[in-house]
Design a binder for these strands. Structure first.
Lengths: 135, 135
DNA sequence: TATAAATAAGACTAAAAAGGTCGTATATAT
DNA sequence: ATATATACGACCTTTTTAGTCTTATTTATA
């Protein structure tokens, strides 16, 4: 609980590796999965999600691969998490994002508001930290 | 992901409710589970864990129940989480607590250290916030 | 233009975690 | 004695996460 998923970990490792390749040369999924011993297919899906969200750019076909779509300091940790896990999944308690009707203790729940404050602090951290700081 | 578990939520709700009862009268599991519509058995186990960790005190038998073992401002959010989830479960990445031999990408992992910084910030928040602030 | 190397994507399976239930034991006020 | 409470382990179900498989598409180049 309260842990980054493997997918997010893999995504961060991959982004850091892609960022380390200067001169804009592309990086293949295989290269990363070999280097870090990560399941090729799983990593591939993570990279596809990052592509869909515009965090990296893909080149298909022979000599294809990925490059960063923006500079490392323009890629927030929160961007990466929400790209991989979905926007709604950065919340300490699951009744917080207007989905109150789905929370069975909503009317009597007393911890929502105070936890929201903590949530904000954590969100701010994730918004502040970028790939360039994943040194 | 990166979400407090229902158990922790229930624990916090219960602690807040117990704290709200002044004059030191005991609170039963049933009272809380009825009030907040929480599974009785699940809540009971959560309260038992909080008892084992010395966060609340239990009285068995008729007229039994629970009271806080310390003042609300002496009960940290981190105490509650680790009592319910286990000490080792407050970590963003699971290779961080000396269990490095269990992490299959340990030798090549590059994100461990930077995430540890974020981890420290979050830990500090959880250490700073107490039940008394769960207003 | 055939081929090999690459991404794209959905379906599926397996494993792990979370949530929840049940049965039995023990303590205790009345 | 009995009813009411906690204690606790075993178990089951559901959900989430992790990982695999298959097929399609794109594209550089021999």
């Amino acid at each position: 609980m309260l842990q980054l998923s493997k997918k997010v970990e893999y995504g961060l490792i991959a982004l850091r590796y892609i960022a380390s390749k200067v001169n804009g040369c592309v990086v293949t999924t295989k290269e990363i999965s070999d280097k870090f011993n990560i399941s090729y297919e799983l990593l591939a899906k993570v990279l596809q999600k990052l592509t869909r969200e515009g965090i990296i750019i893909s080149y298909q076909g022979v000599k294809g691969g990925y490059i960063l779509a923006r500079k490392p300091d323009q890629i927030k940790l929160s961007d990466v998490i929400s790209a991989i896990e979905g926007k709604s999944n950065i919340s300490l308690v699951n009744c917080e994002l207007g989905k109150q009707e789905m929370c069975n203790i909503f009317s009597t729940c007393t911890i929502k508001d105070p936890l929201a404050k903590i949530q904000n602090i954590i969100n701010n951290i994730f918004n502040d930290v970028t790939i360039s700081e994943i040194v």
